[in-house]
């Protein structure tokens, strides 16, 4: 079953086609990676899906709804959450308050209930704090809930971003380069976390440059180059795909590799 699909999704920036007619389908319950060289359009694709950038043409379907023109905040209400490539936590707020912000659309108390401190307000806040603490536990930040988010070390800030996104139990979690700047130990604990998230029922779509990480956790991979989709399939098949090798290594190297595989001497063009 498909959770998210794009059809002919295109975004142009003043002459540059950042995303060019991309068709993609993300299956429910999978970890789906989007890879590609720098400037391939991966982050623009993420911004299109989360609504921060409007498509020039094409459509996005999420859980049976056409969300191509839906405002950003409404997509959160449908069960979509994301992290950012450059960490964007609310640094002047505490760790717990950051995660509570991620629960914004699940807290139903209105202005009247808030001002009059009606029972509904207290109930909603209490439930939200409980859910926020669960999300912090998921990423291992329980002991730091009252610290200011800006004071956390880099790795913790990344995990806080994931906790904030996960607090509302989204259907789809978008992770933009979650392993960037992490050492091998942190990366492997991140891989375990992503698996836990998937096993708890959230589909994960991620952009990542760390190929070991991608091969390790992905169920499906989409490769972009110059905004176009050049591959779509299981991670194991990527190595055999000439277009992908060419995108990463260049035409010359791809030809040499192909020639070597055929048992012939490489011929320089």
């Amino acid at each position: 079953m498909t959770l998210l699909s794009t059809a002919g999704l295109t975004r142009k920036f003043a002459g540059l086609v950042a995303v060019d007619g991309v068709d993609m389908a993300v299956e429910v319950g999978s970890v789906h990676a989007v890879i590609g060289p720098n400037g391939a359009g991966k982050t623009t694709l993420f911004n299109l899906i989360s609504g921060l950038v409007e498509p020039t043409s094409g459509s996005i379907d999420f859980n049976g709804n056409d969300i191509s023109r839906l405002p950003v905040h409404a997509r959160a209400g449908l069960g979509m959450a994301r992290s950012f490539q450059n960490i964007r936590i609310f640094s002047a707020m505490t760790v717990l308050e950051n995660v509570l912000t991620g629960l914004h659309s699940t807290i139903t108390a209105g202005v009247g209930a808030i001002v009059l401190r009606l029972p509904g307000f207290h109930r909603a806040e209490k439930t939200a704090v409980e859910r926020a603490r669960m999300a912090l536990e998921l990423v291992g930040l329980s002991s730091k809930s009252e610290l200011l988010a800006g004071a956390l070390p880099y790795g913790d800030q990344r995990r806080l971003e994931i906790a904030r996104a996960m607090a509302a139990h989204p259907r789809l979690l978008l992770l933009d380069e979650p392993a960037a700047g992490m050492n091998p130990a942190e990366t492997s604990s991140l891989a375990a976390l992503v698996r836990r998230i998937r096993d708890a029922g959230t589909t994960v779509l991620l952009v990542e440059h760390d190929m070991g990480f991608v091969m390790d956790i992905s169920d499906a991979v989409t490769v972009l180059n110059f905004g176009r989709r050049i591959f779509h399939g299981p991670p194991g098949a990527i190595r055999q795909e000439p277009a992908v090798i060419e995108a990463y290594l260049g035409k010359k190297m791809a030809a040499r590799l192909a020639a070597r595989k055929d048992g012939q001497k490489a011929i320089a063009p």
Partner: peptide, 21 residues
Amino acid sequence: SRIGRAMEAMREDPNAAQVMG
């Protein structure tokens, strides 16, 4: 309340606040 948290969040980073709903 959630409104106060939303207000502070959007003061710091409106785009991130929108993504939070």
